[in-house]
């Protein structure tokens, strides 16, 4: 039968391709963009140039590394951006300009993140609400909560102890002169999330769940548990991103606005399958860096924020189209 025949032809092609190391195209795109940035601004190759770039990209990269867990499991987490806002606003309210409170405020914010993730996961798993709707509801709720908590006018600033993570550069590091703490956080989070996704059973279960939930269930995958964990990881990464953003952006009720879509865009640029079953943590981080690089480039060119939004929207669509096209050519169904 033809499907079989063509299938075996594809098998041969795939086997041939398999012998060459397959590199995700996002890394080439990122490299090309970095070259373009360097050409338009030669200072970029100096540590202050690229380190500040990485520092600025770190919150989005962390958010994308968490979002990819939900995407691979077959869902979306739209509440991530509003959780960033809640983290920043909530921290400033709890800290109340008291630097000594940092040690307990951060765990409290992670507890809030854990709760948000569990609620998202439970609503999607047990109440069967589509994740798009469930997390959209959560997004509106959290934004409202942040607004109510601060009565619409968040208080002043965050103490230095809290801003340490997002703002401080560790000096005197060999080769690179200095290392932003935010980048360090990204490397640690990235490594842990990479390991969880690509080396453990959890990662394989997430892929199976997003690929075919019914087959996963009938194969013994604890689908509810796996799905809840995915949402929790996404929420915890949002809290982490919020702590970094609070460090260098300051306090406002719109600090997290739009971050959830940027994170989803980053994952798609990294080749994630939007309906689940396929995705990679390093490629999502590279996707976040790519998106930040594009914004940086647009900044250099001097384009205003609305143009950036238009570009981001177009990138999202183009990335999905390209991913679909590639998959069809690679012989998927």
């Amino acid at each position: 039968m033809i499907r079989e025949t063509a299938g075996s032809a594809k098998t041969h092609a795939a086997a041939r391709a398999g012998r060459l190391p397959k590199i995700n195209p996002v890394f080439f795109v990122l490299a090309a963009l970095l070259v373009a940035i360097t050409l338009s601004n030669p200072n970029f190759v100096e540590p202050t140039g690229y380190m500040n770039f990485l520092k600025r990209a770190a919150p989005l990269a962390i958010l994308a590394a968490g979002q990819i867990y939900v995407i691979v499991s077959g869902g979306f987490d739209l509440s991530a951006g509003s959780l960033i806002t809640l983290t920043v606003v909530g921290s400033s309210m709890l800290l109340d300009n008291n630097a000594d409170a940092t040690w307990w405020v951060i765990p409290v914010m992670y507890a809030v993140g854990l709760a948000v993730g569990v609620v998202n996961g439970v609503v999607v798993s047990f109440l069967r609400v589509p994740s798009l709707i469930a997390t959209l509801g959560m997004m509106i709720t959290l934004n409202g909560a942040a607004f109510m908590w601060s009565s619409g006018s968040p208080r002043g600033y965050l103490p230095e102890t809290f801003r340490f993570f997002g703002r401080v550069n560790l000096q005197g590091i060999p080769l690179v002169q200095f290392l932003p703490v935010a980048l360090l956080v990204l490397m640690v989070v990235g490594t842990v999330l990479f390991w969880l996704m690509h080396r453990t059973n959890l990662g394989r279960m997430l892929h199976a769940l997003g690929d075919n939930p019914r087959a996963a269930q009938m194969s013994g995958v604890p689908i509810e548990k796996v799905r809840i964990i995915a949402f929790v990881i996404s929420s915890l990464s949002a809290v982490t991103a919020g702590i970094l953003l609070g460090g260098f952006a300051g306090v406002s009720t719109d600090v997290g606005v739009g971050y959830e879509l940027q994170a989803i865009t980053a994952c798609v640029i990294g080749g994630a399958q939007l309906l689940g079953g396929r995705g990679s943590v390093p490629a999502s981080i590279a996707g976040a860096l790519t998106l930040t690089a594009i914004f940086t480039l647009l900044n250099f060119i001097g384009l205003p924020k609305p143009v950036r939004d238009v570009v981001q929207g177009l990138i999202l669509i183009v990335a999905v189209v390209l991913a679909t096209y590639r998959r069809n050519r690679a012989g998927g169904t």
Partner: peptide, 21 residues
């Protein structure tokens, strides 16, 4: 699970019954 490898499909249930981490 069609998007996963032959080997992943074979391992699925064994993994599902082992610890997630």
């Amino acid at each position: 699970v069609l998007m996963q490898s032959v080997s992943d499909n074979g391992m699925l249930t064994a993994r599902a019954l082992s610890g997630l981490s």
